[in-house]
């Protein structure tokens, strides 16, 4: 995506992040994001044709745990972090799809 730094729909990205931006903010952020992308695009100048793509810096794999049950956390403690609770449920604004 770094190839085309000029085409950038800031409204769409803001929508995906559930951010409400004013037109002035959109303009400002759009310019900033373009700068950031141009900066990251510098990486394209490197020749990485001989490097295996990876998502990690450490050569680890298969970090497993045994299928064993560990104690969960006390519900009262957990629900202290709920914005609101009813019948031991986390209460959130009504979800409709």
């Amino acid at each position: 995506m770094a190839e085309d730094t000029n085409k950038f729909d800031v409204s769409y990205v803001a929508y995906l992040a559930r951010m409400h931006l004013t037109d002035a903010e959109k303009e400002k952020i759009s310019a900033q994001l373009k700068d950031i992308l141009a900066y990251v695009a510098k990486l394209n100048e490197l020749d990485v044709s001989h490097v295996e793509p990876t998502a990690h810096a450490t050569p680890l794999s298969n970090v497993f745990r045994k299928d064993e049950v560990q104690p969960s956390i006390d519900r009262e403690k957990i629900l202290k972090n709920a914005p609101e609770q009813v019948r031991d449920l986390f209460i959130v604004p009504k979800i409709v799809e």
Binding site: E84, V86, R87, D88, L89, F90, I91, V92, P93, K94, I95, V96
Partner: peptide, 10 residues
Amino acid sequence: FHFETTSGVD
């Protein structure tokens, strides 16, 4: 779970 004005999550 969906209630009148809110939803609850388990």
